[in-house]
Amino acid sequence: MQKILSLLRRCVEDYDMIQPGDRVAVGVSGGKDSLILLTSLARLAKFYPAPFTVEAFTVDMGIPGMDFSQVDALCQTLGVPFHRIPTQINKVIFETRKEKNPCALCAKMRKGSLHEALLDHGIHKVALGHHYDDAVETFFLSLFYEGRLSCFHPVTYLDRTDITQIRPLLYVSEAMIRDTAQRLHLPVVHNPCPANGNTKRQEVKDLIASLEPRYPKLREYVFSSMQRLPLPAWEPKALRRRPKTE
């Protein structure tokens, strides 16, 4: 866990993600990524020189069998307020609209519910659990399916809602998150969504895995090129301070 905490802190500082007095919401789906993010930020808040507080927000999509009581218990252990947002997203998508490609609409509805809850609580900063592998996969998704070099930003300000999104796990690999979540016995909530795993992202994940035996530094080279090109908003503070050469 110490390694993840170190990488998370470096990412926070590289992109100026947290300022003194911030109330930082963590979008907690119940998956390993968001639980590691929640645990790490709660620990960072205890000693970070810029004082901030952490609160957990879970959008409950109304999927039968999903129980967040253990997530609530984890939040109590961490001393973090837990907010469950009840919705009927599952019913709307799969019963009312019967979407064949539900992921985009689901993401939009979850985002809307989360942002509404944040504003109701007077919170304007939310941490999302995207990690190192997510960034590389998103780069390839944009290239293959949109024909452009792009990725989500480490820090994104949404002017329509006055909410800032931060992604503090960008330096942390999925393998490290998975191993740490198992070692800490975090209460991962299984997502029984019918579309889970059957996505273009999974196709790209499988493609990268098939290329890595031949190109073992593929992820590392893609990620570093995103910072050094750089993609918009991806240049870390250390490179911004470095003198530009002709």
Rank of each mutant, 00 (worst) to 15 (best):
C106F: 12
F47Q: 04
D33R: 11
K108D: 06
L239C: 03
I166D: 03
R160P: 00
H124V: 02
L38M: 13
I63P: 01
V24L: 09
I63T: 15
Q227C: 10
T164G: 10
P230M: 01
S150E: 15
I36T: 11
V204W: 10
H190C: 10
P236I: 05
Y145A: 04
T87L: 07
H83V: 10
F82R: 03
L231P: 01
I208D: 07
L149I: 07
A50L: 08
E212M: 13
S224R: 13
G31W: 14
K111M: 14
H185P: 00
F82A: 09
G197V: 04
I85S: 01
R183F: 10
F139N: 01
P213A: 05
M1D: 15
T58V: 08
S225K: 03
F152I: 09
K3A: 13
K98T: 06
Y157L: 12
V80Y: 07
T77N: 14
A56Q: 14
R110D: 12
T161A: 09
L5T: 06
V222T: 10
A181V: 15
V24Y: 00
L211F: 12
L218F: 12
A135I: 11
N101F: 15
T180R: 09
R214D: 15
G197K: 08
C11L: 02
H115I: 07
Y157A: 11
A135K: 11
P154Q: 06
R240H: 07
Q202I: 04
D22E: 06
P64T: 09
D120V: 00
R178P: 00
Q202K: 15
M17T: 04
L141S: 03
E146A: 08
D33V: 11
K111P: 00
K108E: 11
